[in-house]
């Protein structure tokens, strides 16, 4: 999805409890949502973890992880090793959930506001500059 566009609803499955819910139900109660597509086999995702943790600890954003084409065991291991920055994580076994966002692959990050509008879209791993930009957007 290109920036400034609102998506239609779809169903997602939670990583740990494997419960199925509508994605719109996830996006409630916050002003900003950060959606990050990641995978345990994705090298740049490892470096990206610290940026995500920093955002989680220093901003009131809700962090949503989309675990892309991964095995549950590997994904949980990855979170143990590099830290878990997410409030909620959903599975994208086939890569089709990511297409709903208009994603190209892993890693990719989207910043949404409470109107479900995509404010920012980052293809590839986040950088210092991107984190600064996200913080600025949220704190204004």
């Amino acid at each position: 999805m290109s920036e400034n566009q609102i998506f239609t609803d779809f169903e997602v499955v939670e990583l740990i409890e494997e419960k199925q819910i509508n994605f719109s139900e996830v996006l409630t109660g916050k002003n900003f949502y950060l959606i990050n597509i990641w995978s345990s086999w994705c090298e740049p995702c490892k470096d990206e973890s610290e940026y995500l943790l920093e955002l989680k600890n220093n901003t009131p954003v809700m962090m949503i992880g989309i675990n892309y084409k991964d095995k549950k065991k590997n994904a949980l291991n990855f979170l143990k090793l590099y830290g878990d920055p997410f409030d909620q994580i959903f599975i994208d076994k086939q890569g089709t959930i990511s297409i709903n966002f208009g994603a190209y692959g892993v890693p990719e990050t989207f910043l949404l506001n409470n109107d479900y509008k995509i404010l920012k879209k980052y293809i590839g791993p986040l950088s210092d500059k991107d984190v600064y930009e996200i913080k600025k957007t949220i704190n204004n």
Binding site: K69, Q94, G95, G105
Partner: peptide, 21 residues
């Protein structure tokens, strides 16, 4: 994510997901 290929022709992760989608 490919160069000059259609989704149908490509075997990339992106294309495979798109086919399923």
């Amino acid at each position: 994510i490919c160069q000059g290929q259609t989704i149908h022709e490509s075997n990339s992760d992106f294309a495979e997901s798109m086919k399923k989608y």
